[in-house]
């Protein structure tokens, strides 16, 4: 019987479906069957019938606690995809920071819509970036980008759009812990386009456990209370980036 007709036979459908569900259909036959199942609703229905009927066997299956690292790996894989988007966007933002604020806004939109087709700027490869935070203001415009490299614990901060800061004031960067929400200082920020500084070990630890980075406006010299003021100018998720080589410096 030709394949297409053969699969119309209810008995054949049932035999194939039951063998698929119990797992005795293997290899290429299994791959072929999965393709047929996607287009043949009768066969898919029979597969679901067998899956549902066998499910009570798992009632007594002993639970086995997963390893702690498994959830972390899942989260990293899920966020990995978005990390790559952020990092690609970052390389474009750096290119566009030389343009006007208006052009940056356009670049953001164009970058988000078409980054997959965007050819990245080829420069000498730099050490890999380990964390990145695209910092947004209250209007959700990207105004700063913070990148961190494990090598030399280097923190780089690019100001894409200069915030309005009163005289006798300064900006201060903070890490917000994902564990307990505590906020710790990462130092004052110079109002320059691009700044870099090496973090201490303790500060690097803050980055590793940070959910967000925030930038507040403080009196010159920085917060004397050890906590940020209520005037925040930027906030961004601190995302771990793995195995990514910076191409933009």
């Amino acid at each position: 019987m030709p394949g297409s007709l053969r699969y119309q036979n209810p008995e054949v459908q049932d035999r194939l479906a039951s063998n698929y569900v119990i797992g005795t259909m293997r290899g290429k036959a299994r791959d072929r069957f999965e393709k047929i199942m996607r287009v043949n609703q009768d066969i898919a229905r029979r597969v679901h019938f067998w899956e549902e009927k066998f499910q009570p066997l798992h009632k007594g299956t002993v639970e086995v606690a997963p390893k702690r690292s498994t959830w972390t790996r899942i989260v990293n894989r899920i966020n990995g995809a978005s990390d790559q988007i952020v990092v690609k966007l970052l390389s474009q933002l750096r290119f566009y920071r030389f343009l006007s604020a208006a052009a940056i806004s356009v670049a953001l939109v164009v970058g988000i819509l078409s980054f997959t087709n965007f050819s990245t700027i080829e420069t000498e490869a730099a050490p890999s970036i380990n964390y990145v935070a695209v910092m947004e203001n209250n209007q959700e415009d990207a105004v700063m980008v913070v990148t961190l490299k494990k090598t030399d614990r280097l923190l780089s901060l690019d100001i894409l759009k200069k915030p309005q800061v009163p005289q006798s004031s300064t900006l201060q960067l903070w890490a917000v812990s994902r564990e307990d929400g505590s906020i710790r200082s990462l130092g004052v920020v110079e109002l320059k386009g691009h700044t870099e500084r090496n973090l201490s070990k303790a500060e690097w630890g803050l980055i590793q456990s940070a959910e967000h980075l925030i930038v507040s406006v403080e009196k010159t010299g920085g917060s004397i209370t050890g906590t940020p003021s209520t005037l925040l100018v930027a906030k961004g998720l601190c995302v771990k980036v793995e195995d990514w080589q910076s191409r933009s410096g």
Binding site: H58, T61, E63, V64, P66, T70, W71
Partner: peptide, 19 residues
């Protein structure tokens, strides 16, 4: 996850593989 991990363990019989 613990229940699903248990289902996988019955088949692969290895903690690393089931994870």
């Amino acid at each position: 996850a613990p229940k699903l991990n248990g289902v996988a363990m019955m088949i692969v019989h290895d903690n690393d593989l089931s994870n």
